[in-house]
């Protein structure tokens, strides 16, 4: 084969390759067109998303501020309730002391009464009247009932005090929500600045929604059904005692 014939054959081979490329190109062209159409549709959507994110981001500091206001308001209200409960407890104490005083006076009165009885010995009519008077003026039973009621009010007041632990727990929950809002806000603010489809994807996929990363709150704080949690705590402490050596236990609990 001459050199010229060899070159021609190579050229034909290359042309065949080129033809194959064009054929593939023909097939790919509609796909590329769909992709371009799709991008044309998605860009306005991304702009909408961008606007929505921007609007939401602007609202977030306000929401966060409102949550802080709620926490402050509940703390103030709780303090007022605690003040009132303390006042009620103090007044109940005053009543109790007053009853004690009356009881002491009653005892002194009774002693005098017995002395009078000794002086009117033989005078049946006076003795009868005095005994009648003694019966109608006995305070013990009445004060016993009053004391029971006071004790119940005092216990109920203390129960109100203990129930107000809910304020601390809800304020921790609100702090957790606030922390979450602040985290989302900072992420979204960054997103708004450099939004494009790939960035959006990357940012959202890398977002962490961790409530307990930082902050001085317990995001899992709960007011409901905590009795079993204390039992759980006691069990763990007991387990730790069993696992640890006696020396370690002594060190831990001495």
């Amino acid at each position: 084969m001459s050199i010229q014939t060899k070159n021609m054959s190579e050229i034909f081979e290359k042309m065949d390759d080129l033809k194959s490329v064009f054929k593939i190109g023909e097939r790919i062209l509609p796909i590329l067109q769909s992709l371009i159409d799709f991008m044309g549709e998605i860009i306005p959507m991304l702009e909408n998303i961008n606007t929505s994110i921007s609007d939401s981001t602007n609202q977030m500091p306000k929401v966060s501020h409102q949550i802080n206001n709620v926490t402050s308001a509940t703390e103030l209200a709780t303090t007022e309730i605690l003040d009132l409960v303390d006042e009620i407890s103090n007044e109940l104490n005053d009543i109790d002391q007053a009853i004690n005083k009356i009881m002491e006076m009653n005892e002194a009165r009774e002693q005098k009464f017995n002395e009078i009885l000794k002086h009117v010995e033989g005078n049946k009519k006076v003795i009868g009247l005095l005994n009648e008077y003694k019966t109608i003026s006995t305070f013990e039973d009445t004060f016993g009932i009053i004391r029971e009621v006071l004790s119940k009010i005092s216990n109920d007041a203390f129960k109100i005090t203990m129930s107000l632990q809910v304020q601390d727990i809800t304020s921790q929950q609100l702090s957790a929500v606030n922390h979450l809002i602040e985290s989302v806000n900072s992420r979204l603010t960054g997103l708004v600045k450099e939004i494009d489809s790939s960035e959006l994807k990357r940012e959202f996929s890398s977002m962490k929604w961790d409530l307990n990363e930082t902050g001085h709150f317990d995001g899992n704080a709960s007011y409901i059904n905590r009795e079993h949690v204390q039992s759980h705590v006691d069990q763990i402490i007991s387990d730790q005692k069993q696992i640890a050596s006696q020396e370690e236990i002594d060190k831990l609990f001495s």
């Binding site: 709780t78 303090t79 303390d86 005090t161 203990m162 107000l164 632990q165 601390d168 001085h216």
Partner: peptide, 13 residues
């Protein structure tokens, strides 16, 4: 405790 409420509750208890 950072909570005034909780300090009072523990104190009262």
């Amino acid at each position: 405790d950072d909570s005034v409420t909780m300090r009072r509750i523990v104190n009262n208890s």
